[in-house]
């Protein structure tokens, strides 16, 4: 199934999604990688606000290449999400609804996805030029000193994504290869 979603999203929006479905995502998406996540944790530890409204939000694990003059963004594919595993459950518990990246997540993240009715979506790894075409606006909103790791607010249109972890415990990284191998055995 293919779903069209616009951020911010609710638990109800995400409930029908199953691992292996595709999503065309539009609306606001915030970028954050390792260093930005670490700083967000420091803010929370200090009892301060996050730099963006977290409820129903989508975070994209990406460090784009610099945009050429006149262009919105450079190449912008996902980075490996597992490096954010230490931080994601806390953000999901605070209301973050969508994680976008690539690669496997640990059990704590899977549990937090189910607990919060969230989803983990994959963008095509190594397809940065393709992803760039979906980004219509870009603004660095904080931590410019982090360079490619600064937090950016993106406005995206029909960003093509695949559901990896759904709110019901589904995991495409297990079910996808198993389905292929099962077919081979038939």
């Amino acid at each position: 199934m293919q779903y069209k979603l616009t951020t911010p999203v609710t638990r109800e929006d995400l409930a029908p999604l199953k691992a292996g479905d595709t999503v065309l995502l539009s609306g606001t998406v915030y970028t954050a990688r390792d260093a930005a996540h670490k700083r967000m944790m420091e803010l929370l530890d200090a009892g301060k606000e996050l730099p963006f409204p977290v409820e129903g939000s989508a975070l994209y694990y990406v460090g784009p290449t610099p945009e050429r003059p006149g262009e919105v963004i450079g190449s912008a594919g996902p980075t490996t999400s597992g490096r954010m595993d230490a931080y994601s459950p806390r953000l999901l518990d605070l209301g973050q609804a969508i994680m976008i990246g690539k690669g496997a997540r640990n059990q704590e993240v899977k549990d937090a996805v189910v607990r919060n009715g969230a989803v983990y979506l994959a963008a095509l790894g190594g397809a940065g030029a393709l992803m760039a075409a979906c980004v219509k606006k870009l603004e660095v909103i904080c931590w410019e000193d982090l360079g490619c790791e600064a937090v950016r607010r993106l406005e995206v249109e029909n960003m093509p994504l695949t559901v990896i972890l759904d709110a019901h415990g589904g995991d495409l990284y297990e079910s996808g290869p198993a389905a292929y191998l099962g077919r081979e055995r038939k």
């Binding site: 262009e71 450079g74 594919g77 190594g126 397809a127 940065g128 030029a129 393709l130 760039a132 292929y180």
Partner: peptide, 28 residues
């Protein structure tokens, strides 16, 4: 496997986009 074939085709689209838009193939 059809899904895998489609995914590989998208990776090829990405190569074409990179050339056309003078963008790095991958952001890393």
């Amino acid at each position: 496997w059809p899904l895998a074939g489609e995914t590989l085709a998208l990776l090829q689209d990405n190569l074409a986009q990179a050339r056309k838009r003078d963008l790095p193939i991958c952001q890393d």
